[in-house]
């Protein structure tokens, strides 16, 4: 039997020290980690449990922004009154993620660190080739079942889609990941697969997410998260968009726009070209639709996931137009 040791960290520092040891992994809600251990993907030698650590589950919101402790539960953040009013896209992204049971267990830190749902990644016994799991072993997905794989940010080594919802909203609103003292923009926290798909996050051994900071803005205040999928609930996105908008006083001209895509890329995908194309323009359906097509510039499909290239711009356009309606 695979023995593993369990260590209940008494403080953030103790957790970081323990997690720096080879084979150690932080355990928060466990909804990703235990699942992957059962699949034979994660093989932790030591579980460093941080779920109970005090002071890391706070949610603080004021004009400047929100600071969310890494151990805050998805359900608590989703339901937080100030998050709902100042960052609707964040709350909506969380509400539409996973299931009620998982949201009650899962933490914000763990959520950022969730891993791809690529079926080949999750089945080592049947598919030994996976560059993300075993660098250099190849990619089983390319040429296989690719309906859920990414069309943006892929590489020859890996086309796995980043499946999370929250991070899409965080990327749209320039959130900052706090790793203790070190702070890093969330867009830089997620890495493109390139030739090293095994490296997904700009986090070093012994580092731990302590909080997420989201700067307040008018665009974040008028924001939404639109998630499209075949099943109404409890499914990852076929395509999603986090969008925030600020109008000029005329109520029609776009002063500021934040757009990020989920379900289509290897990392939460900021669509700055769409933002730039629309800033300063009046909100007209045709303008919005044609600008939204820029969201998938450079997209590459692998057969069954081609529909994502069609779908993603429509999701972006609908989300932008929806925010316009509430003007």
């Amino acid at each position: 039997m695979r023995d593993l040791s369990y260590f209940r960290a008494s403080s953030v520092d103790a957790a970081r020290q323990a997690a720096a040891l080879p084979g150690a992994m932080l355990l928060a809600g466990g909804t990703t980690l235990i699942d992957l251990a059962k699949c034979g993907v994660a093989e932790p030698e030591t579980l460093v449990d941080i779920a109970h650590l005090k002071g890391l589950d706070s949610i603080e919101v004021d004009e400047r922004g929100a600071t969310i402790g890494a151990l805050a539960r998805m359900s608590h953040v989703a339901d937080h009154a100030d998050i709902k009013s100042r960052f609707p896209a964040v709350s909506e992204a969380l509400w539409q993620a996973a299931s009620a049971q998982i949201r009650n267990m899962a933490t914000i830190g763990g959520n950022l660190m969730q891993r791809t749902r690529c079926p080949y990644f999750r089945d080592p016994a049947n598919f030994p080739a996976c560059n993300k799991r075993e660098p250099g072993s190849g990619c089983s997905a390319i040429g296989g079942v690719t309906r859920g794989h990414a069309v943006l940010g892929t590489s020859e080594a890996c086309i796995a889609m980043y499946p999370g919802d929250l991070a899409v909203a965080l990327v749209a609103f320039d959130a900052i990941v706090h790793l203790g003292e070190r702070q890093i923009p969330v867009d830089d926290f997620f890495l493109l697969p390139g030739t090293t798909p095994d490296r997904e996050h700009a986090i070093e051994p012994g580092e731990m997410i302590t909080a997420i900071e989201i700067p307040g803005s008018a665009a974040a205040r008028r924001s939404t998260y639109l998630k499209i999928r075949d099943r109404q609930s409890y499914e990852f996105a076929a395509a999603s968009a986090a969008v925030g908008i600020e109008f000029e006083p005329d109520g029609r001209t776009i002063r500021d726009l934040c757009v990020a895509l989920g379900g289509v890329a290897t990392k939460p995908w900021r669509a700055r070209t769409v933002e730039d194309a629309l800033k300063g323009k009046a909100l007209e359906p045709e303008t919005v639709r044609s600008a939204s097509l820029l969201a998938v510039e450079g997209a590459v499909d692998h057969g069954a996931n081609h529909y994502k290239i069609e779908l993603a711009p429509r999701v972006v356009a609908r989300a932008i137009l929806k925010l316009g309606e509430t003007a």
Partner: peptide
Amino acid sequence: IVDRRHGRVVN
């Protein structure tokens, strides 16, 4: 959904 190279249901 069958992976046609492996004859295996992947979902």
